[in-house]
Design a protein around this nucleic acid. Sequence first.
RNA 1: GCUCCGGUAGUAUAGUCCGGUCAAGUAUACUGGCCUCUCGAGCCAGUGACACGGGUUCAAAUCCCGUCCGGAGCACCA
Length: 501
Amino acid sequence: MAEALGVHIVKEKPKREEHLLPPLPNVQKYSRVHVRFAPNPDSVIHLGNTRAALLSDEYAKMYRGVFILRFEDTSPSVKPPMPEAYEVIREDLRWLGVNWHEEYIQSERLPIYYEYAEKLISMGSAYVCTCRPEQFREMVIAKRPCPCRDLPLEIQIKRWEGMLDGTIKKGGAVLRIKTDLTHPNPAIRDWPAMRIDTKPHPLQGKKYRVWPLYNFACGIDDHLMGITHILRGKEHEVNTQRQLYLYKYLGWEYPEAIHYGRLKIEGAILSKSKIRQGIDSGIYKDWSDPRLGTIAALRKRGFLPETIRRLILEVGVKPSEAMISWDNLEAINRKLLDPITKRLIFVPDPVPLQIIGLPKEFVAQIPLHPDHPEWGNITHKVTPSLNTIMVSSKDLSSFKQGTIFRLMNLFNVKLLDSSICAFLSESVAEIKSLGAPIIQWLPKDAGTQLSVIMPDAKVTEGLVDTNILNETLPNTFQFYRFGFVKVYREDSGLVGYYSHD
RNA sequence: GCUCCGGUAGUAUAGUCCGGUCAAGUAUACUGGCCUCUCGAGCCAGUGACACGGGUUCAAAUCCCGUCCGGAGCACCA
């Protein structure tokens, strides 16, 4: 109808229109887009890894494609898989809102890799190399074939069997894919595909002693799983070049590979090895230590999955490196959190303050959200006999004797000495015209102990409005004049993790 | 050193393919002001960038060359 009238109806604009992802290349070549996220379960995932996962997920949704989760756990001794990591990673992905349609674990697919290894050997496209690594390197730099390269097929097969049956010891041989020995990049010349690793695998035990290297397993799997578009960091650019040879020999077409630059976040640790090292040495409590850039840490601190997704989409797929600032991340999170988060009183480092000269009983109405009066208020009473309240020592110590200030939502007082003040008046307007400070407070017995872990892992102790115990926890609150805090109920009591202002 | 890949404000990003509408947009940060019983949110205004040098062109952030700077890779890791 509208079209008949020559009117073009614009559908509801996407919320993030300014950060829509660019289209994927050559989508029309494939019947259905297949993307994958292939983490190594040797550790948990962090903001950097999330980039591949979220970008792939977003594209899968954009094209109604298939998202494949593949655990790349084929290095028992160099990157030993952490048994619990498989589930922790799934958990993190679910939390991030990533939907995967298929899941594979490479350590369960060794027979497939063996099959292709044998095929490539018999085709003369791969050979078993028994040179010492340094020896091989010398030759390859000189663009000369190593002595193993052109050995007859029967010997290659015999050597391959030797790798499998244990005749050849660990480190004694490696399967190499033939490439171009004159390739300008020495790293590409006759790259290794399989090696012997006798360390028991957490999932497979001692079942296998020959394991595929990254390029072999990944290259084969990407094809077998029908991957059409690969999103990965640019550290893999050379790997793409290597795998091209494999695809050529097997007559396969290589997927579209998109390489993005590294993601760093100012001040936070994003290196898996450094994280693990820090945990082992006790510097960090665990993977969710607030100083880390892990998903577990961001979640614990109250960052929302949507925040992380928006950030990743904003950064996009550029090949250059990006240094994310906390300001940006926090601003996104604050914008999402602010309208939906209850306000409560938290008094850091509390000290008592007695109020004298009270003419009557006062009831303070503290809104749960200033922009949502319908959410209601929390009330606190101060009477001539119940006249001691708790305030932050930081506030109190900044006031000189005689300072006039307001107790938020209550009344105005004048400081007499370090722990006594006198009732002055009730009017808000009065205090505003003076430009005097307004501070948060709690009646002496209305607070519950709360330890807030700050982003630098230091702890701020304080009292939080006891009404928090009526809330479902964990939950994020905004404490007046303090900031957003995600509060947990732990055995030791209430523990909060500071998100941001 | 070798092989690749990049460089738009403090940070991130749009624009670069298909030169003019870009005296460069947006977000955040910062500075002023308004609003607010939070040092939160919101509103208004402002500061701030095309790495440098050549070339092509009537015209260059956009194309070409050089320089500088940055990153990645050069594992029997992924």
